[in-house]
């Protein structure tokens, strides 16, 4: 159970080994041959990869641009002038998506963690809470997000209750938080259950209460174990915030839709789509990095 602050000697160590660490005798001819072979093999693999990628790209490009409908598709989906015109509105809309993402993401973390903790409570006294949490997860994990959006976005305001928000921004965020909390709660629960029971035994035998044990000993380890999975859900959330457009909030998707409705050219959708991809790339890379670090921790020194 090695944890994060420990930096594995990564590339530096490999470099120092192949370069000959100070104090080591000069490498034998056998080792030198092995290194030369490894270098040759790695050069060859790089070359093969480069060539095959290039060939694939050319085939796709030629195939698509020579298809009978391509000129038509090009003007409807990839029109530069349409893109330029729609871009400012879509970017303004994307700002709304980012706001939903940040506020919603934080709420999801808090609510998800709370539900996960409720689900792991033991003892008959907590049965109603446990049941409630389980029911919540079953309901919102099973319900398609789009239907939750409709129910919350159109159902809640229809009640005409005083003080209830009616803005599609707030209601859309609420619906997304409801759905994603259910997913994230399950991720947290998996993390809590991945902490070995002996940790709990050790904490309890020091006199810590159940609550103190959960907060100080179990949760910190649980959160570290599931960080890659959480980041994956965050990437998924980044694109699902575009769904608040169905409630009429003028986000990137809705802005594109308006543009499309005026020109009957679909380029704005492509622009919005690419912006979402750009938004997702950094967090996807962070998720990769975190996952890779976790992998390195678990199999240090292995070449596989």
């Amino acid at each position: 159970m090695a944890l994060r602050r420990r930096r594995r000697p990564g590339p530096e160590l490999t470099a120092s080994l192949t370069g000959g660490a100070p104090g080591l005798p000069a490498p034998s001819q056998l080792e030198l041959d092995r290194r030369a072979f490894r270098a040759r093999r790695s050069r060859r693999s790089t070359l093969v990869a480069l060539v095959s990628t290039l060939v694939f790209a050319v085939v796709v490009y030629v195939g698509v641009t020579n298809s009978p409908g391509w000129p038509r598709v090009q003007t409807t989906f990839f029109s530069l002038s349409n893109a330029r015109e729609a871009f400012p509105d879509i970017l303004r809309g994307l700002w709304l998506n980012v706001q939903v993402l940040v506020i919603g993401g934080l709420c999801v973390l808090v609510l998800g963690l709370g539900i996960a903790v409720l689900r792991t409570l033991r003892g008959p006294a907590f049965a109603p809470l446990r049941l409630l949490a389980t029911g919540y997860v079953d309901l919102f994990r099973g319900m398609p997000l789009i239907i939750t959006l409709y129910l919350v976005g159109f159902g809640l305001p229809a009640l005409r209750l005083q003080g209830l928000p009616t803005s599609p921004f707030v209601l859309g965020t609420l619906a997304i938080v409801l759905t994603y909390s259910a997913y994230v709660a399950e991720v947290f629960r998996a993390g809590i259950e991945s902490v070995h029971p002996s940790q709990r035994a050790a904490a309890r035998s020091l006199g810590l209460s159940h609550r103190q044990t959960t907060r100080i000993v179990v949760l910190p380890q649980a959160v570290r174990n599931v960080t890659p999975a959480l980041l994956n859900d965050f990437v998924a959330l980044q694109k699902d915030v575009g769904l608040i457009s169905v409630l009429g909030a003028v986000d990137a998707v809705r802005a594109a839709q308006i543009e499309v409705g005026q020109t009957f050219n679909f380029t704005p959708y492509v622009v919005a789509g690419l912006l979402f991809v750009l938004l997702a790339v950094p967090s996807a890379r962070i998720a990769d990095g975190v996952a890779a670090r976790a992998r390195r921790r678990q199999q240090s020194g292995s070449v596989l």
Binding site: M1, A2, L3, S198, Q199, A201, A202, A203, S205, L206, G207, L208, Q212, I216, V217, P220, Q221, R224
Partner: peptide, 25 residues
């Protein structure tokens, strides 16, 4: 209690492991 498998808390330093119960409990 001391266990066969040590069961130290891996996310805390040695010092934090030892001071946890005196401070919190």
């Amino acid at each position: 209690v001391v266990f066969q498998a040590f069961n130290l808390f891996p996310h805390m330093t040695v010092l934090d492991n030892v001071t946890l119960a005196p401070t919190v409990v």
